[in-house]
Design a protein around this nucleic acid. Structure first.
Lengths: 336, 336
DNA sequence: AAATTTGCTTTAAACGTTTAAAGTATTATA
DNA sequence: TATAATACTTTAAACGTTTAAAGCAAATTT
């Protein structure tokens, strides 16, 4: 079947393409198109199964009704959750999502930004990766609106939708303290990502403010490139020798691999050790004990990100940063 | 910063846009553009930070270098896995992915198909949902190439990349039989989806061919709308009264909710009951016993889907259906 | 009866590219 | 020296829309 264009309809009805365009874009009233003619145009469009060419439309109007989304890795629970929320909200607002996954590579990240910008997206929602500063700065100079989500760079002022990581980690640690723990270990990635560092900061602040001396051996940082083996060492270290009585994991992935190690060492949760996780995981559903955790408001983040982006597309103005709170979900993994 | 176009470069260098286009598209040789001029054009493009307008390009060449992807729900492990593979392979072949999630709604599915087609995608990769037959048939009449992945409709002949669900379920069941089980229960969704029905068929065939009489109460079908409560009833039924000694779950989600119920009833795996899962889950990592399962080749499926799609974009020809095999991952969850 | 208003419609340029086809020097061949 | 081939460049139409501006009857006002 050949593609039907405005011209075909115009020809079929015997009018100009202008009229057809007006009618099919709901400007029939405004442009005072004859009622009978309008009706014939609509019928013809129906009959001929007209599909507007969004490319031509976008080219002419300089608006693609498309937003670009780059996540760090779609296999993360965080990414798929946020993607779902963003896609749904975008659709609701009549936008289409162009998608890319950087797989935590800053090269792929900046490449993707380029591709999406070339595709004339109206704006971008980005989960930036380590070392993406340069891309972000470049992007700022182009006039493509964007908002960062989940991660940002403290020395680059951008629209962003973030978690209050500091507070979430602080509150989580306080929860452990309130449960009577004082030997609280903390395991994080050794990454530069600001959101992760904020979690460390929150943990340390909570200890300090509660007069708990921080034992250096209790905050451990695993390399994401070797997290299995680093985690093994970390857990072994924490449960032998200078034993701690609680572990706070800074991400869901860390929790899972930590818990695996804990299980293999026959250490019981919460009898032998308490566990708290930043973020949750499907894996917790089948662990011997439900894991207390800080829950990220993914739906909300996605929705706000889209709203913020469309706002800044329509009326660019001051930079906007929103910090959302996590919800502490208290289960049985931290003994009293 | 104003947008820089071919025209601006042409003006800057003092040549026509045609030359600029030739040079920047690597046709400098072919079109015998002067070496020195070509160099000046390239430099100008660099300096002015030229970004080609992909929309204009696509409009003119009638090729968007874009593929549409619709998954059933990006939160499924299957979906994110397949999305990652598809995005990566598409990128490798210089295609960009436009993404949508139908959330298992056939209305949203057909709406998404329309949106993507209007965006002039060169082709579509679809995980169809129940009752999407009509959309698929319509799509077939338009000349947009597409390939179905994971699910198809037996009475509609389309390009598709599928799992050999029958064989996978058959082999899985045989594995249970070989482990000495004969009272093997099977839990599936009560959906019309052909791939799920094939799993049921594989299970039944394995029993039959091994002379095991099939007890009707042993194949149970839960409603996806009430799967928690239906699952509860199902498991209770299977472990009390007419006890079976193994359960084969038809999907990862079913396994998780089934296992949760099993745990809450203090039934032990594999001591009291054996468990086999179709597909795997992050959740298995923390279960008390590693779960034997049939693993889907997500990477491969995604890669093949893209390849098949691009093939059919470039030289449309006979319909192509590929059935991939699963890999049985044998763990400790099925006792001897 | 001329001028104006109203109601409807068309014209044509533009969006940023691509690409046949035509144009114009310069050099080589007869 | 005329002719042809070569090397390089421009012209201009096209892709499928949108939209300001102009056009033209018929109806209304002066």
């Amino acid at each position: 079947m050949k593609k039907v264009g405005l011209k075909d309809i115009a020809l079929h009805v015997g009018v100009s393409t202008a009229l057809v365009s007006y009618v099919l874009n709901g400007q029939a009233e405004e442009k005072q198109v004859g009622k009978e003619v309008a009706e014939r145009i609509r019928r013809a469009a129906e009959e001929l199964e007209y599909r507007p060419n969004q490319l031509a439309k976008s080219l002419k109007t300089r608006k693609s009704n498309t937003i670009g989304l780059i996540v760090a890795d779609i296999n993360y629970r965080f990414s798929s959750g946020i993607t779902r929320a963003i896609e749904a909200e975008a659709k609701r607002k009549n936008y289409t999502v162009i998608f890319g996954s950087s797989n935590e590579s800053s090269d792929k990240f900046s490449e993707l930004v380029n591709v999406l910008v070339n595709h004339q997206v109206d704006g971008l929602i980005l989960v930036p990766v380590e070392h993406a500063e340069q891309s972000i700065l470049t992007l700022q100079k182009s006039d493509v609106p964007f908002v960062l989500i989940d991660r940002n760079f403290p020395n680059i002022l951008t629209n962003s939708v973030l978690l209050d990581n500091y507070k979430a980690a602080y509150d989580s640690t306080v929860h452990l303290i309130n449960q009577g723990h004082s030997k609280i270990a903390f395991i994080n990635y050794n990454a530069q990502l600001h959101n992760l560092q904020e979690r460390t900061r929150g943990y340390l602040a909570a200890l300090e403010e509660h007069g708990i001396e921080h034992h250096p051996g209790w905050s451990l940082f695993v390399r994401s490139s070797h997290y299995e083996s680093d985690m093994r060492k970390a857990i072994q270290q924490l449960v032998s020798g200078n034993k701690c009585d609680a572990i706070f994991f800074a991400t869901d992935r860390l929790s899972i691999s930590g818990l695996k190690e804990i299980v293999s060492l026959k250490v019981r949760v919460p009898d032998d050790i308490s566990v708290f996780s930043f973020d949750e995981s499907e894996a917790f559903e089948l662990f011997s004990c439900p894991i207390s955790h800080a829950r990220q408001p993914l739906e909300k983040m996605g929705k706000i990100a889209v709203t913020m982006l469309l706002d800044s597309i329509n009326k660019p103005r001051a930079v906007n940063q929103i910090y959302l709170e996590t919800q502490l979900v208290i289960e049985k993994s931290c003994r009293e």
